[in-house]
């Protein structure tokens, strides 16, 4: 009983961990299912079919391609614009600072359905047809704040003496930026870009408001499939995404720990 009390927080913590991860295990396991009907909700029999024929279902790989394309363009654009804003906030004094911070915070505190629908009313009022471009505009908009917050934290943690040291060593401003500042901020930019990509790639609600039937992203495809019948290939994509991202994180951790060990 005393043992139970001492370890209660660990037991509860591990149970919550299980709650967080259980759906991922289900997604992976059911990518090897051969369902009896149209829906992949009940285990039937083990099969590699979906893995050997990933693009076998019509439309899915096209939607995947569109999501990748939008994710890459949106995250890179948001990274460039967001990094500029982050530097302005981290490095300069200027008027309207509070207003700027508020404008950056607001999109993160607004429900997606409000952002998606309000953007749609703008496109309707301006007579702009929805499609690939409007999805891109929306994605860059909601990715921006997250990039800014991520990069700003990195800029703020920079030691200003490093740039002064570069200047003392006769580096001009451009050289100091390229050789000292940028490499130090780069991990923050990379993290912000990856975050933006994953937000863009995974977004359904805002996208659904600003898409057209000819611009179906992967989450929209999955949404439609949930009504029509879920092909096993969806789980294959889910599994690949999960393992791929996990690999990126592990490699990143190993690299950064090796670098910090070298630094010491």
């Amino acid at each position: 009983m005393a043992w139970l009390r001492r370890h209660l927080v660990i037991i509860v913590g591990l149970l919550v961990m299980l709650y967080i991860l259980a759906p991922n295990f289900v997604v992976i396991a059911f990518s090897f299912n051969n369902p009896a009907g149209r829906f992949n909700y009940q285990w039937n029999q083990f099969s590699f079919d979906a893995w050997t024929n990933v693009c076998g279902v019509p439309g899915m790989c096209d939607s995947l391609g569109l999501s990748l394309e939008i994710g890459i363009i949106a995250s890179l654009t948001a990274a460039v614009l967001g990094t500029m804003v982050a530097f302005a906030l981290g490095r300069y004094r200027f008027r309207a600072r509070a207003g700027t911070n508020l404008l950056i915070f607001l999109p993160m505190a607004t429900p997606e359905v409000v952002m998606g629908s309000s953007l749609l009313t703008l496109f309707i009022a301006m007579g702009i047809p929805t499609g690939r471009t409007t999805i891109l505009i929306a994605h860059i908009m909601f990715c921006l704040s997250f990039v800014i917050v991520t990069v700003k934290a990195r800029v703020a943690s920079l030691d200003p003496r490093l740039e002064q040291a570069a200047a003392d060593l006769y580096a001009n401003e451009v050289q100091a930026f390229l050789k000292v500042t940028f490499p130090l901020v780069a991990p923050g930019i990379a993290a912000g870009t990856l975050l933006a990509f994953s937000l863009s790639f995974d977004d359904f609600i805002i996208t659904n408001f600003n898409a057209s039937p000819s611009s179906v992203t992967f989450p929209m495809y999955v949404w439609g499939a949930a009504q029509r019948g879920t092909p096993v290939q969806i789980n294959v994509i889910g599994t690949i995404m999960f393992l791929g991202a996990l690999a990126i994180v592990v490699v990143g951790q190993v690299l950064s720990s090796r670098r910090s060990r070298q630094a010491v």
């Binding site: 759906p23 289900v26 059911f30 909700y41 790639f201 359904f204 989450p219």
Partner: peptide, 24 residues
């Protein structure tokens, strides 16, 4: 900490669908 954010790596629509399998 990585495991806490790991679910984000898979599309959340797919993960939400997985609850149908669990709770059915």
């Amino acid at each position: 900490l990585v495991l806490v954010i790991a679910p984000f790596f898979t599309s959340f629509l797919i993960r939400t669908l997985a609850w149908q399998t669990i709770l059915g």
